[in-house]
Amino acid sequence: MSETLLKVDHLKVHFPMRATHLFGGQGAPVRAVDGVSLDLKAGETLGIVGESGCGKTTLGRAILRLIEPTDGRVLWMGQDLLGLGAGHLREARRHMQIIFQDPLASLDPRMSVETIIGKPLRIFHPELSRKQVRERVLETMQQVGLAPSMANRFPHEFSGGQCQRIGIARAIILKPKLIVCDEPVSALDVSIQAQIINLLMQIQRDLGLSLLFISHNLAVVRHISHRVMVLYLGKVMEIADRDDLYARPLHPYTEALISAVPIADPRTERGRERLLLEGDLPSPINPPSGCRFQSRCPRATEICGQAEPPLVGYGKNHLAACHHIQVQD
């Protein structure tokens, strides 16, 4: 786990807005991702958490250039993806895959499972014979826990958990180095969710994959990630090794998020201190000045409205952006 596979540098994704006035020209853009940096090593899982609208999905897609970033750099094994033309981008993308939240919606209903899973292989390896493709598909199906006898069936014949397995099979058939997992277990029942988490972790071990694991479920992220990044309105609030982050959250937003998640244990729940945030996420069109979290922050003071706090290191691998961090050692 030493080689840095992916390095994202001050990535910005701004969506232009329609004019709000008839003669007003263009309105201010939505800053969905606003200067996010991260790095990911081979075999590592980075969890990305935050509330809806924090930019986590946009970040995942911008890294793959499924959404065109506005500014910044995405270095994939040292090569800047943002400058690549279509041909080179396609070549790089064979190593990067994505799986989505809604497993059924991300599969073409008119294609058999064999066609769906085999498609990346046929695109990148046109030299393979039909028989060879079929063999690889059946092998991959077994790897993700699908019976090869189901290869000729169509997506609607499968349950949600099985559809997610099909999505995973399609993602790993090219033996990629990175998979962006965008809320892959959020639509699944608890018992199925555990099966898919186990599968992802096992495949990661077997193939030495790196994962960007995007989720709003902090417990799932803790289980699967090595490091965790907390986003709020397009900015990184905190990033740290997972146990460090959950045991010693430095940013008040991280603290509030963790405190908000109910734990399936009534005794623990009764003893927990609750840090309730006021209100909802502000609109990303017009975020608060200074620190974006200040409008909901229990620690906010005058400076928070004036200056944006930089992301500063506190101990090993632990960065947070807040004017009022209280470090206890």
């Binding site: 969710q193 803790r222 289980h223 998640v261 734990i263 399936a264 244990d265 623990t268």
Partner: peptide, 9 residues
């Protein structure tokens, strides 16, 4: 089957 927020598993 439910991962716990307060457990380092």
């Amino acid at each position: 089957a439910t991962p716990r927020l307060d457990a380092a598993t």
